[in-house]
Amino acid sequence: MKPILKPFCMLLISMAIGTPIHLFAQKKTGFKVLNDFPIKSTGGWDYITVDGASKRIYVSHGMQVNILDVATGDSVGVIPDTKGVHGIALASDLNKGYTSNGRANTVTVFDLKTNQVLKQIAAGTNPDAIFYDEFSRKVYAFNGRSKDATVIDAASDIVVATIPLGGKPETGVSDGKGKVFVNIEDTNEEVEIDATTFKILNRWKLDGGEEPSGLAMDRKTSRLFIGCGGNKTMIVLDATNGKILGKFPIGGCDGVAFDPELKQAYASNGEGTISVIRELSADKFEFVENIPTERGARTIGIDILTHKLYLPTAQTKPVEPTADNAHPRPQQIPGTFHIVVVGK
């Protein structure tokens, strides 16, 4: 046996030397916290939108939207009177921005160049997530309490449809080809909408996912990355048929971003991490790592030109429970709100 064993061992060694390292160990991102941009005004926060082309960051913050320079963090403007603002959508081809104002039940329209408010549009009850579908030139505001979507024609800024969704909607995305997808948080579903007729085409149950919130898409492969904060799971879904292609452990996520060049999906977790899922092919995915950030950084924006990630958070202190509120939310420490910058 010895004459056979030695050549066999040499064969194994030569195979190992010639095998790419990613087959033995996942390649890490090399990402880390690079900077933080302070915003001294007070108020809560939700979504953040990054536009690398205009080099601007739009941050929902209490009753206003703060606009920062993407490279320096310097303030370059404010959109005022956005009561309970949740999200910011950009229709760059029309030079317009839109904010979803949860407490006012309105959508604010503003000029992207001057930051001047152009119009207030009535929406449903508690508009939360919002995005612009460039295919149909429509803005979708997803209303948490009325459980529907307000569809606004971005050319005229007129509401053209209200779509009942049968549950509480969270983040929505478009495939850029006529389909819109939205998470339904309280029914654990993904809903597909026809962007031309505004009809619901499919309702897909997210088996193994609870309270889907964050959502991003690889348009090239038609894959949806769904962050389910209820059971700390990311589901990868085939947007053409609703088939679940993967499930990965993450944290208490409220936001998801996707980098189409690096083929990486990022889930921002309130525990203070970013969970990274890499797309190896249209049907193969892997968990890469958890990148340390800061506690409370649960939403995320991405600059796809620089590959940097931006996450809002603040320092908090505990609040004593009362008879009316046994589990109160921590209180924000004034002057500590900031944007965490993550990248290489």
Results as ranks from 00 to 15, higher is better:
175 D>R: 09
176 G>F: 03
176 G>P: 10
177 K>N: 15
177 K>T: 13
178 G>W: 03
179 K>H: 12
179 K>I: 09
180 V>Q: 07
182 V>M: 03
183 N>T: 15
183 N>I: 09
185 E>R: 03
186 D>L: 06
188 N>D: 13
190 E>H: 00
190 E>W: 04
190 E>P: 01
190 E>L: 14
190 E>Q: 12
191 V>L: 01
191 V>I: 10
193 I>W: 00
193 I>T: 11
194 D>G: 08
195 A>N: 10
197 T>C: 04
198 F>T: 01
198 F>Y: 07
199 K>I: 06
199 K>N: 10
200 I>L: 04
200 I>H: 04
201 L>T: 11
202 N>I: 01
204 W>K: 00
206 L>G: 07
208 G>M: 00
208 G>E: 01
209 G>P: 08
210 E>G: 06
212 P>I: 00
212 P>F: 08
213 S>R: 15
214 G>C: 10
215 L>Q: 01
215 L>V: 08
215 L>H: 11
217 M>L: 07
219 R>E: 15
220 K>H: 13
220 K>M: 08
220 K>C: 04
222 S>T: 01
222 S>F: 12
223 R>E: 03
226 I>C: 05
227 G>W: 07
228 C>N: 14
228 C>T: 08
230 G>T: 05
233 T>H: 09
234 M>E: 15
234 M>F: 05
234 M>A: 12
237 L>D: 09
241 N>A: 10
241 N>K: 14
242 G>K: 01
243 K>P: 04
244 I>Q: 00
244 I>C: 11
244 I>N: 12
244 I>H: 00
245 L>H: 07
246 G>N: 06
248 F>M: 12
248 F>N: 05
249 P>S: 05
251 G>C: 05
251 G>F: 02
251 G>P: 13
252 G>V: 13
252 G>T: 04
253 C>H: 14
254 D>M: 14
254 D>N: 13
254 D>H: 11
255 G>F: 08
255 G>M: 11
255 G>S: 10
256 V>E: 10
256 V>D: 00
257 A>K: 03
257 A>P: 14
259 D>I: 09
259 D>M: 02
260 P>D: 12
260 P>L: 02
260 P>T: 00
260 P>F: 06
264 Q>W: 15
265 A>Q: 11
265 A>F: 05
265 A>V: 10
265 A>I: 04
